[in-house]
Design a protein around this nucleic acid. Sequence first.
DNA 1: GATGAATGAGGGTTCATTCAT
DNA 2: AATGAATGAACCCTCATTCAT
Lengths: 209, 209, 209, 209
Amino acid sequence: MYKNFLNLNQDKQKKILEVCIHEFAERGYENASTNTIIKEAGISKGILFHYFQNKRSLFLYIVDYCFQEVLEEYKKYPLTETGDIFKRLIEFGVLKLKLYHAYPEISKILLEALVNSPKDLRLEIETKYNRLSKEFLPAFFQEIDDTKFRKGVDTTKAIQILTLFLEALGQRYLKDYKGKEQEMLEDVDKIMDEYYEYMEILKYGMYSS
Amino acid sequence: MYKNFLNLNQDKQKKILEVCIHEFAERGYENASTNTIIKEAGISKGILFHYFQNKRSLFLYIVDYCFQEVLEEYKKYPLTETGDIFKRLIEFGVLKLKLYHAYPEISKILLEALVNSPKDLRLEIETKYNRLSKEFLPAFFQEIDDTKFRKGVDTTKAIQILTLFLEALGQRYLKDYKGKEQEMLEDVDKIMDEYYEYMEILKYGMYSS
Amino acid sequence: MYKNFLNLNQDKQKKILEVCIHEFAERGYENASTNTIIKEAGISKGILFHYFQNKRSLFLYIVDYCFQEVLEEYKKYPLTETGDIFKRLIEFGVLKLKLYHAYPEISKILLEALVNSPKDLRLEIETKYNRLSKEFLPAFFQEIDDTKFRKGVDTTKAIQILTLFLEALGQRYLKDYKGKEQEMLEDVDKIMDEYYEYMEILKYGMYSS
Amino acid sequence: MYKNFLNLNQDKQKKILEVCIHEFAERGYENASTNTIIKEAGISKGILFHYFQNKRSLFLYIVDYCFQEVLEEYKKYPLTETGDIFKRLIEFGVLKLKLYHAYPEISKILLEALVNSPKDLRLEIETKYNRLSKEFLPAFFQEIDDTKFRKGVDTTKAIQILTLFLEALGQRYLKDYKGKEQEMLEDVDKIMDEYYEYMEILKYGMYSS
DNA sequence: GATGAATGAGGGTTCATTCAT
DNA sequence: AATGAATGAACCCTCATTCAT
């Protein structure tokens, strides 16, 4: 598939990837211009289409690459809080936000690949996403100590709530800090405090004591 | 402004609106093609721009139309639960979900108009949105009985949690039922039950008794 | 030909003519927009093309009208200096400039009709121009007292020189005062003085004493 | 800048230049059609804009090219008469006329580029023109022996007259010989004689003896 | 006579993709 | 492997002109 590209030396690959990520992040799939890409990567029209058959497959490659990239980052920071789901979720939420802001372009591509691309692309990417998250997420919750939940609380439901809520909260932060990545990093402590406050309320509703 | 269009007989208006909504929903503002629109609506290039001066103003009209459309639907279903915020939110969440599924394209346009359009368009739409939601939302929360919250719970924060959570839950349902609008309507009771279960947990964490 | 238009009451005719003159003067034949014309004249698309079959013939009508208009103006100011060609030419030159500036749009149309229009239009207008100027110009020089020229000076040639020179001088003034019609009218005396200076030199070369 | 175009082989460049010159000369900047150009040059839409970024810059290139072309022609015929301004002007006038007729389209473009183009284009071209004419024109008059003028004659005014007159005369010849370039070249001697006659009259009015 | 809705060709420009070199 | 010249469809939009009313 992409072997022509993968045979390139690392530096050139890196350069091209960076340019593509930048362009796709900034302008979205359809508006991204292969012309801009080759100009900024300093490569020729022909060779781009030699590496990646067409724009579509180039984009799929980039999305995949971004995926792997963030996954590896996630793996670099193993979550320490194992027993207490609330603490773990806060850790996870903050990590996510940090990664969003450490790799804003990669994050933007991943977020928007599922929203702004043409239908067929969207579908293709969606299936990959789903496959991956099915492998990844269960591991996250497997060591949870579910004896702490109060009776009458369906643990799965509770986790659902927490996950969904954190997802939504994360997105709200993302929106609020859009274009102010630096500020966000400075506010990490404040954000974590907020996470805690919210979690405290939820915890009260779920835990037994 | 749009009088040329509004003078048209209802059938033709409907047809054109449907085509535009479909195109803008599927491809977004920038990638929507006026060529596709005229082809599918069976009208000429010239007349489209006779009705709506340009693509931009066509889009604004469509967004406005979508707005009115959902607003009217909302008004059709006045929320009955007044005192208990949890019940009211459930009602609201389910209503929202129903509307999402009854008008998936309209909903998509409204959701993405504020996210994926070029900056200037976004700003123009945002101001309209804000004006409307300032009229609409306060009424929603004004009669809430906040004595019911337990001490130590910041009412605003609590409402934030509920709103965010419902938003996220709604989106998950949306995703799950994508393309299966009928099933969704049949499952409304099941969904409401789920809403209740989730809410019960949250309520426990927030209410005093 | 234009009888539909000519049957209109004078006010309506006037209004339409003014609008057309303005549009054609400002934007030239090809860039002039019949849309703009009907909008500003407050008439309908259909009726404009009912009066004048098409844009081409509308333009020809306007050019003709402009022609008649300036010709009439010329006739209003019969040149007083009869014997002395130099004085008459100065009078004529200044009159011309005044008319250019009294009717800048009409003048612009006439000037540019012969330069900026499509080839076939240009040719058609040119023939009319030539026919008219052949009737008009000889009268201008018929009462010239040619005994004043010094021997060896071909009177016809001399008049050619003067005519050409004045033409060129007039155009230079036109260019210099482009967009500053008011200033020009204020400078009329200064301009006449310049005309005199130039003429004095030429006169010295042509007259006998 | 125009390197894509300049890398073309001479024949193709020539062909495209000719077509562009023809189109711009005949229809002016705004009404010239890039569609017509590509059709007549037998090239594709894409490649025209690959050579020249856009219509504007294509036009600027063409104007520049025309400029260089006539300048080179001027240089081929160095003016021999140095002291006597009259003789020199005749030489110059005739040369100009010859060039007008040898390159009617190029001449038309240069003449009208400064008159009929949109304002911003005009300004850009004007600055280039001025820069060039400031290098070129002074040389033309610098060796003039102005002691020959009779007292009371303002040398500058005199030269103004001569220049303006020649300009006007040239334009009349141009008009007379329009479409009959061959005849004109055959009549060069007759024309020069006429120039002489005219000049003789003017000289008499300006020179002292 | 008078309207203005409707047409569709044409405007300049950008684009992903191909292919001879 | 690598280049970039070349293609032509597609982009939004404007236009003179027609014709049913």
